[in-house]
C-alpha cells in the first residue's frame, strides 16, 4: 500500500521549504529555485492523488505544470538578465522599486 499521509506530508514540507526560500532568501535566483520547488511539491501531490483516486487527471495537471514551469523559467531568466544588466546585482533589496 501507498503511505498516503507520508506522501502528503513530504509534499507539504517541500512546498513550505519552497515558500520559505521565496520569502527569506535575498538572491533572485534562489527565489526562482524556491518557486520551482513549490511547483514540484504540487506535482507530487497531483500524482499521488492520481494514483490514489485512480484518475489520470492528476497526471495531466502535472504535465501542464511542466509546461507552465518551462515558460516561467524562460521568462524569469530573461527578467533576471535584464535587471542584472540594470543594477549589477541580484539582491532583492536592490529592487524594491515599488516604493512610493
Amino acid at each position: 500500500m501507498i503511505p498516503l499521509n507520508f506522501l502528503l506530508i513530504v509534499s507539504l514540507i517541500l512546498f513550505m521549504v519552497g515558500t520559505l526560500t521565496v520569502l527569506i532568501r535575498r538572491n533572485i535566483l534562489m527565489i526562482l529555485m524556491g518557486l520551482e520547488l513549490m511547483l514540484n511539491a504540487a506535482s507530487l501531490l497531483f500524482i499521488t492523488y492520481a494514483r490514489v483516486l485512480g484518475n489520470l487527471m492528476g497526471q495531466f495537471f502535472t504535465l501542464f505544470i511542466f509546461v507552465v514551469a518551462a515558460v516561467e523559467v524562460g521568462l524569469i531568466i530573461a527578467i533576471v538578465l535584464n535587471i542584472f544588466g540594470l543594477k549589477k546585482s541580484l539582491l532583492t533589496s536592490n529592487f524594491s522599486l515599488m516604493r512610493r
Binding site: 532583492t92 533589496s93 524594491s96
Partner: peptide
Amino acid sequence: ALKMQQGDMQFYLLYMV
C-alpha cells in the same frame, strides 16, 4: 499604513502567507 508598503516584494508575499 505606508510602513507596510515599502516596496519589498517579499514582504508582500509574507502578507499573502
